[in-house]
Design a binder for these strands. Structure first.
Length: 420
RNA sequence: GUGGGUGUAGCUCAGUUGGUGGUAGCACCUGGUUGUGGCCCAGGAGGUCGUGGGUUCAAGUCCCAUCACUCACCCCA
């Protein structure tokens, strides 16, 4: 029989590792709550059309990376924003509150070749603000992301750009295309292709030759319309006011079609080829494009959880040893049976209690208690059982005392809660 | 889709010019203590050497194929 394994690009998160995930999630939930975000959870399957309409028909994600049930026209979400907006529109959340602040945490699916920090099922923490157009919200959101990463102890840099809007981007695109045409011959093959598919992408090519060529390229920041320009300036002022360090990157482009104006990335150099641990931006036309009300601006970003975890793991081996309250040792069949009942009563009172079910020796059970991180061990053998007492050992101080135990388990439980 | 690297115990890895699979480390079990954990010591268990073919008296080692994993390109969190 062939061994069954998880699919390529799909990973189990096992005990010892899952604690780190919980830590990241708990920290995020705490910070999101401080910024008045509410959680929303959406299904993983959506109509294929939703992603085609939001992310863009011509993007790599939609063209070749989606897990789609072709016969049913449904797709496992490759990102969260589209689903979240669908839910927002479907439930008329804009009516309940003019500004909705929402976050969601969960798995996303893209059929790419896996590599470091990139999986086929990966997890994102996704944050969106709907109905707010103020540049202060852009700054506030970036400040929240920066605070979360800082709280987690992850060192990144924040880079920002503006992609303009449907009014000014086409103009810049033309200027850029002219610039590219002049150097078309020396650009790499990928960029030759990009110059027709998505010229803005040429700006962030990693090829050294292209980089050099593009150094002198026109900056979109010089071609913004008045509205976009004012917004861009105000976002920077907001970041300055909040003391959030950032740098402007005129080469930064985003891969999804829906972005407008502000875009940003939290960047690291410690993840191999994967630079972005988080990225996002404004998408003012998207709600309307998906059939929602007009003039509902939006902005949001996503953090890649696997990437955060990788960074935390390589920054320091932080081990969170498990700790329990009490390990109850039972020696002999009669004592074990008694302990079986006692442990359950202890657990009902809220105590983290454990025992051995294999009838092992005292020494072995003490080892288990130690490994489980028990603060106390309660030893009950045949003698103790007969005499109505037990030995309570403080595992750290090694002090032990005899306590009287009757047949009433609740009384024993109460006594132990006092002692421990 | 394209290119590179790696497959030996649950994990991390040795394995020489081809000559019997490692007293290796971590983890696990038992004992050293008639009923007391961590440290130490002794012992034990654990393997189709990824899989299939080929060369050879002999293959973990050389050759071919295949699968898996991994890193990178593309793209993205």
């Amino acid at each position: 029989m062939t061994k069954l394994k998880a699919l390529n690009g799909f990973k189990d998160i096992v005990p010892g590792e899952v604690e780190l995930w919980q830590h990241v999630e708990n920290t995020a939930r705490d910070i999101f709550a401080r910024f008045s975000f509410s959680e929303i959870r959406m299904p993983i399957l959506e109509k294929t059309e939703l992603f085609a309409r939001s992310i863009g028909e011509a993007t790599d994600i939609v063209e070749k990376e989606m897990y789609t049930f072709v016969d049913k026209q449904i797709t496992m979400r490759p990102e969260a924003t589209a689903s979240l907006l669908r839910a927002y529109i479907q439930h008329g959340l804009h009516v309940q509150k003019p500004v909705q602040r929402l976050f969601t945490i969960g798995p996303m699916f893209r059929h790419e070749r896996p590599q470091k920090g990139r999986l086929r099922q990966f997890h994102q923490m996704d944050v969106e603000v709907l109905g707010a157009s103020s540049p202060r919200v852009d700054a506030e959101l970036m400040a929240m992301g920066a605070l979360l990463l800082e709280t987690l102890g992850i060192h990144v840099s924040l880079e920002m750009n503006s992609l303009g809007c449907p009014d000014c981007r086409p103009g810049f695109r033309k200027v850029l295309l002219d610039f590219i045409k002049e150097r078309h011959g020396v650009l790499c093959d990928d960029c030759k292709r990009r110059s027709t598919t998505n010229p803005l992408r040429v700006l962030d090519c990693k090829n050294p030759v292209c980089r050099e060529q593009v150094e002198e390229a026109p900056s979109i920041q010089d071609h913004l319309c008045d509205g976009c320009s004012e917004h861009f300036t105000a976002v920077q002022e907001g970041l300055n006011q909040l003391g959030v360090p950032y740098s402007l990157n005129k080469f930064m482009v985003r891969g999804l079609d829906y972005y407008s104006r502000t875009t940003f990335e939290f960047i690291t150099t410690d993840l191999g080829a994967q630079a972005a641990v988080g990225a996002g931006g404004r998408y003012d036309g998207l709600v309307e494009q998906l059939g929602g009300s007009r003039n509902v601006p939006g902005i949001g970003f996503a953090l890649g959880m696997e990437r955060l975890i990788l960074l935390l793991q390589q920054q320091e081996e932080l081990s969170t040893p498990n700790v329990i309250d009490l390990f109850v040792v039972g020696l002999g069949e009669a004592a074990s049976e008694f302990v079986f009942s006692l442990v359950h009563v202890l657990r009902k009172t809220g105590m983290q209690a454990a025992m051995d079910h294999e009838g092992r020796s005292l020494k072995s059970q003490m080892k288990q208690a130690n490994k489980a991180g028990a603060r106390f061990a309660l030893i009950i053998g045949e003698n103790e059982l007969a005499e109505g007492m037990a030995v309570l050992r403080n595992m750290e101080s090694q002090e032990q005392e005899e306590i009287g135990i009757g047949s009433n388990l609740e009384d024993i439980s109460t006594l132990l809660v006092e002692k421990i």
